[in-house]
Structures are given as structure tokens and as C-alpha cells.
């Protein structure tokens, strides 16, 4: 019997349904787990994604053929039952469940376990085969509670503001920026956002989910206005040229990689806050365990390590090579969505 899911040159493929999941090359039909650019690429014939991804997908990919799906809604393709389930990664992110003749496969996409107040919280889905990411698949990645890190970020901003120094915080414009806005006490001072983030918010307006308004950064704004301000920007904006307008300023980076001192230092930022949209080690183990899957396939991240660990625990686990990034080898290219 053919397996329900396989990997070929184009991507993760379900032959029975003739559909790809997050394909990295042009495909006729693509199920999209979420709108980050390493998962939702250009050029597919038909996209199917959770309805909250629509705005971002169209914003990023232009006028694509897109079918919106609700969480839990069942779609049938040549006898394969397909459904999307919350992955808790970013707004509209989903795990994709495929069932055929009693066999169930779940593709996690990117996910995190703890609710972030923005995206629908992760729901474990029982299956026979669980295909999981492993971006932070080492025990050293052990996230502190969100509150702890956001409180620290708030204190950092407050401290800077008291000294009349602008606080510039870098985080991905899709996901991290919204969490920052949701979790900080914004009455503390003016909040500015890089144009890319403002665009993202416009693109998300259709979801009905609202984010606190932030002022757009503009070259014409007098420096004085930034003295007590928080400026949120995507990592790509971290250039001397762009930062110049905020002098004097301090920078911080919000990313899971910031859990390590070495990475914090290499970032050249003053502060690092380990806030991630991916599951930490315990989160990965939790998702794997609650899937009750007998077969675990591990994609992008510390896949070898996690696979070996699971095998030693008596589980059937293997590495599945994909072209999704968020790879540990290039620490800081956490699947960003560049907005053009």
C-alpha cells in the first residue's frame, strides 16, 4: 500500500488526495499550514488555508486562488478526509490532519503549546503518524512564562524612557509584533511600529481581531517624540541607517534564540528576550506524546537529536528532510515574512 504522505522534489505529498502540504515548489494544489514565507510560497495553482491567513497570504502573494477553511471543517479529496486544527503558532496557523481508510497523519507545521493571546491555542490531534517541527528541539530551550519575559521587556522600556532613550524592539512582524502589543502595558508611552507591521495589521483587519493602534515610523517625526517611545520593527530593519532616526536608542530582540547568552551577544543588541512562537523542548515532547502517534517524523530544526532521543525512549522516530527553514544552522532566519 502506498503511504498516505511522502516527500518528493516538490514537497510533502499525499498521492491519494493529490495535494501538497506547504510545498516548496510550484504545486497544483497546496494546503498551507500558515502564512510565513517558508511555508506559504509563490506560484501554486490553488491554496487552501485557515481563513485568518487570507489577508496575509494575499498581501504577500498577490492575487492567488485561495479557499478559506475553518478549524475542524472537513474537506474530502478522493476519499481522503482533510481538516485543519489550531497550531498556536501565529494567527491562522494550523496543523493539517489527513485520514484515509482509518489511517491518520498530522502535519504540525510550526506550532507552540502555550496560548499567546492572539492565535487560536494549540490543540493536540491524535494520529498514527505525527510530522513535527523541531526548531527548538534541545532541552536548553525551556521558555519562561510569557509574563516573566514581557514584564522584563516592560521594565526595560520603562527604564529607557526614564533616561530619555528610545526603546527599539525587533520581532517578526507576523506573530511577534502582535504578541508584544497584546502583552505590554501600552499606556506607558507612545508606541511606534515599522511600516511592515502596520501593513500586516491592515492585512489582518478582515479577521476582526484588533490590535492596539501604533503610530507609523516616519522620517519626518522629530526625534523628541521617540524619547519615551517603544518602536517595534522586524529584524530586517536592524540597519544603522534606519536606526539613526531614533538616536539615542537601545535595541532588544524578541526571539527564542535569545535564550542563549552567546546568541544574545552576537546579536549586537542591548537586550534579548526569549519569546518564541515555536514550541520549546518540553512543548515538543508534549505535542508528540499527546498525539499518541506510533510513528514520529521530524522536520526542520534539531531533527537528528530529537529523533535519537525519542528512539532511545522506545518510540519510532525518524528525520524527514524538508526545505522549511527556521533551521538551527542559520540561527536568526526564523522564517520571516518580508513585506515588499
Amino acid at each position: 500500500m502506498r503511504s498516505l504522505l511522502e516527500v518528493n522534489d516538490i514537497g510533502l505529498y499525499c498521492p491519494q488526495a493529490d495535494v501538497y502540504i506547504d510545498p516548496w515548489r510550484r504545486a497544483e494544489r497546496a494546503l498551507i499550514t500558515h502564512a510565513h514565507s517558508d511555508h506559504a510560497r509563490q506560484g501554486h495553482g490553488l491554496y487552501m488555508a485557515h481563513k485568518h491567513s487570507e489577508g496575509i497570504l494575499k498581501h504577500r502573494l498577490g492575487n492567488i486562488r485561495l479557499e478559506n477553511v475553518e478549524y475542524g471543517q472537513k474537506i474530502y479529496m478522493n476519499g481522503v478526509e482533510i481538516s485543519f486544527h489550531p497550531a498556536g503558532h501565529i494567527l491562522g496557523s494550523a496543523q493539517v490532519r489527513l485520514e484515509y481508510k482509518g489511517e491518520v497523519v498530522v502535519v504540525s507545521g510550526d506550532y507552540k503549546i502555550t496560548p499567546d493571546g492572539v492565535s487560536a491555542p494549540f490543540e493536540p490531534v491524535k494520529c498514527h503518524t505525527f510530522i513535527t517541527e523541531s526548531t527548538f528541539g534541545l532541552p536548553i530551550y525551556d521558555w519562561k512564562p510569557d509574563r516573566t519575559e514581557f514584564d522584563a521587556l516592560q521594565r526595560w522600556w520603562k527604564h529607557n524612557a526614564e533616561e530619555g532613550i528610545c526603546s527599539v524592539v525587533f520581532g517578526y512582524s507576523l506573530g511577534k509584533a502582535q504578541r508584544i502589543l497584546r502583552n505590554l502595558d501600552l499606556t506607558q508611552g507612545p508606541v511606534y511600529a515599522h511600516g511592515a507591521i502596520i501593513e500586516i495589521h491592515k492585512a489582518m483587519a478582515h479577521t476582526g481581531i484588533e490590535f492596539p493602534e501604533c503610530l507609523p515610523v516616519d522620517k519626518s517625526i522629530p526625534k523628541e517624540n521617540f524619547r519615551k517611545a517603544l518602536v517595534i520593527a522586524p529584524p530586517a530593519a536592524d540597519t544603522e541607517n534606519w536606526l539613526r532616526q531614533f538616536v539615542p536608542f537601545k535595541t532588544a530582540v524578541c526571539s527564542g534564540w535569545m535564550a542563549l547568552r552567546g546568541t544574545r551577544r552576537r546579536q549586537n543588541a542591548h537586550k534579548g528576550f526569549a519569546i518564541s512562537d515555536h514550541a520549546d523542548w518540553k512543548g515538543l515532547l508534549y505535542a508528540i506524546e499527546s498525539s499518541e502517534a506510533g510513528n514520529i517524523l521530524i522536520t526542520h530544526g534539531y531533527s537528528d537529536t530529537l529523533a535519537r532521543y525519542l528512539r532511545e525512549k522506545g518510540m519510532q522516530a525518524e528525520v524527514l528532510n524538508t526545505l522549511y527553514t527556521g533551521d538551527a544552522a542559520n540561527e536568526n532566519t526564523e522564517a520571516d515574512e518580508t513585506v515588499h
Binding site: 534541545l138 532541552p139 542563549l260 537529536t305 535519537r308 532521543y309 538551527a328
Partner: peptide, 8 residues
């Protein structure tokens, strides 16, 4: 696994 962590 500890050694691997240490390496990273």
C-alpha cells in the same frame, strides 16, 4: 544529549 546541548 547533554553534550550536544553543551556544544550548542
Amino acid at each position: 544529549l547533554f553534550e550536544e546541548c553543551y556544544h550548542v
